[in-house]
Every structure is written in structure tokens, then in C-alpha cells.
Amino acid sequence: MTEKTEIFEKYNNRTHVLGRTVCSITLVLLLGAPFVMGMHLGAMPNLPAAGKAFLAVGIVWFVSCIAEYLVYTPMLGAGGGYLAFITGNLINMKIPCAVNARDIVGAKTGTPENEIISTLSIATASLVTILVLAVGVALLIPLQPVLQDPALQPAFDNVVPALFGAMAYKYFRNNLKIALIPLAVMSLLFIFVPGLISSTSFMILPSGAIAIGIAFLLYRRKNDEG
């Protein structure tokens, strides 16, 4: 084992210890906050009602969390994974941000470099969000009329399309063979079953599976030819 590998292994092992510890603390804080708020307001959460509400709306999100965990953890690596699941906003920020950073520096999945870049990227993005929200909340009264100006609403309603438009060009142009079929299948599906539009985040899985399947076929063919 080289010295660099040894340093990275040590770093990675400590990342898991640190990640598990901070995730556990964050969980306690998050689940404890409603009770502390309850003490402050003089009304504790109604646990049977919370259980009922969880069964009504939470099961879907539980399944979604399993899928998100399985799909995104390999993209994010250890440090990035712990941080992203603590800070949230994965689809609309952390995943594209980490993928973009990886692409800019040319890091390969599963390498120590990718692990470092992913962690740096997600930590930075999370800090920016925390800062923007903290400043925004502090300036909520003067900022509210500007941010809620009806003239600006189309801009803020289209943050995600603006993000995915740029990312689509960047990734589709070199991978047209992979992108064409999932894009066509998803478009047709949403055209003929428009009810699915409200469940787009769940449709990522079949769309991703199609793209990975095509990529694997192309990879095999390239290897066979090589």
C-alpha cells in the first residue's frame, strides 16, 4: 500500500466515523426540535396524529428516500453523501453541483480525487445555501416585496428548468446515444399520462435505468470491438 493510499484510507475511515456521528446528532436535533418548540409554545406534538400523518404521506417519501439513497450515494461518495443527506436539496442542487464540479476538474467516479471534489463541492454549496437563507431570513421584510414581485415570479418559478437546460446541453452533447431514448420515452410517457407529471421525482428511476442500460450496451460493444 503506498503512502498516499494509506493517507486516503485513513481519511476515508475517519469520514465514516465523523459522518455517522454528525448524522446521528442531526437526527436527534431534528426530531427533538418539535418537542423543544412544543415546550416553548406549551403544546407538544400529537404523537398518534403524527403517526397517522406519517402513514398517510410518509410512506411514499420513505420509498423515495430508499431510491435516492441507493442512486445518489455512489455519485456523492462518503463525505459528500453524509453532507448531502444532512443538508438536503439533492436533485435541485447537490447532485448537479457535485457532477458539475467533478466534470470541471475531470475526476473519475470511485477515485480518491472524486471523493475529495465531491465533498468540497457539496460542503461549499451547502454553506452558500445556509448563508443565503440566513441573510434572506434576516432581511425577509425588505426582501419580500422584491422576491415576491409578480414580474419576477416567472424567473423563480423556472429555476429548475434553467438548471437542467444548461446541464442537459453539457451532458447530452457528448452522450446523445444515451440521452435520446430516455428523453423520448419520458416525453411520450408524460404526454400520454400527464398525471405522472406531479410524480417526476419518482420517474427519475426508470429514466435512469433506461439510460444506464443503454450506456452498458454501448460500453460492452466498445469493449468487444476493442
Binding site: V99, F164, F172, N175, I178, A179, I210
Partner: peptide, 14 residues
């Protein structure tokens, strides 16, 4: 990369 392309495709398709 393919998974990410799938993610973007789902949103653009929607």
C-alpha cells in the same frame, strides 16, 4: 453520467 442523463431527461420530458 447515464444516471444523471436519466434524471435530466425525466425533468425535460415532464
Amino acid at each position: 453520467t447515464a444516471m444523471f442523463i436519466g434524471l435530466v431527461s425525466a425533468y425535460i420530458g415532464s
